[in-house]
Amino acid sequence: MTTDMTDQRSAPGADPGDRAAQMRSTVRFTVNGEMREIEIDNRTTLLDALREHLRLTGTKKGCDHGQCGACTVIVNGRRVNSCLTLAVMQDGHEIETIEGIGAPDALDPMQAAFVEHDGYQCGYCTPGQICSARAVLDEIAAGIPSHVTGDLSARIEITEDEIRERMSGNICRCGAYANMMTAILQVSRGAP
C-alpha cells in the first residue's frame, strides 16, 4: 500500500475532514481470485471500494454501521461486515464476494438452495445471508464455538440452534429466516 498526502497545507487544528480528504492510497488485494489495484480515498470502506470502485454491487449497503449484515463478505476466509473496515486495511488480503461464489447461470449449492426454498424475498439482504450461511458451516466444521455451543471440547454438531445463533448478525426484514434454515440445512447435509 502506498499513501500519498498530496496537500501539506493543512496546519494543526485545521479541519480534520479537509485534511483527510487529501489522503489517498493505492491498495492491492485479491477479489474473487483476481488481483485488483485501486487508488482510493483513505476514508473508503471496503464496502464502498467494492460497490463504487470495483462495481461489485452484489454486496449491499443496508445501514453502513455494522448493524444489519447486508454487507457481509469473506476476507481471508472469515466473514466480516465490509462497512466496518476500511479498504486501506485490506492491502494484500483475499476477499470473496457474492459474485465470486456463483453466477446466475452457475449457482453455488447455497445460492441454489436459497432459490429452491425461497430463502429470501426482496433480495437485498440475500448476498450477505449467503456469505454468512457458507461461513457458518465452515466455522462449525472448524470447531469455532458459538454462544449456544454446549460442550466446547466435543465436535460441534450442525443444529438449528447453532445455525440460528450464528446467522443472527444478518437481518432479514422480509422475515425469510425459516426458509433460509431449510436451505442451509439442506446444504449442510450435502443434499442436492
Binding site: R51, R55, L56, T57, G58, T59, K60, K61, T97, I98, E99, I101, G102, A103, P104, D105, L107, Q111, A112, F114, V115, E116, D118, Y120, G123, Y124, T126, P127, I130
Partner: peptide
C-alpha cells in the same frame, strides 16, 4: 421458485443506488 432468484442470490439484481 422465483424467476428472479438466480439474479438475487448471485448479487446481479440491480437496486437503485447501484445503477452504474
Amino acid at each position: 421458485p422465483r424467476i428472479d432468484g438466480p439474479l438475487k442470490t448471485s448479487g446481479h439484481a440491480p437496486y437503485a443506488y447501484e445503477r452504474h
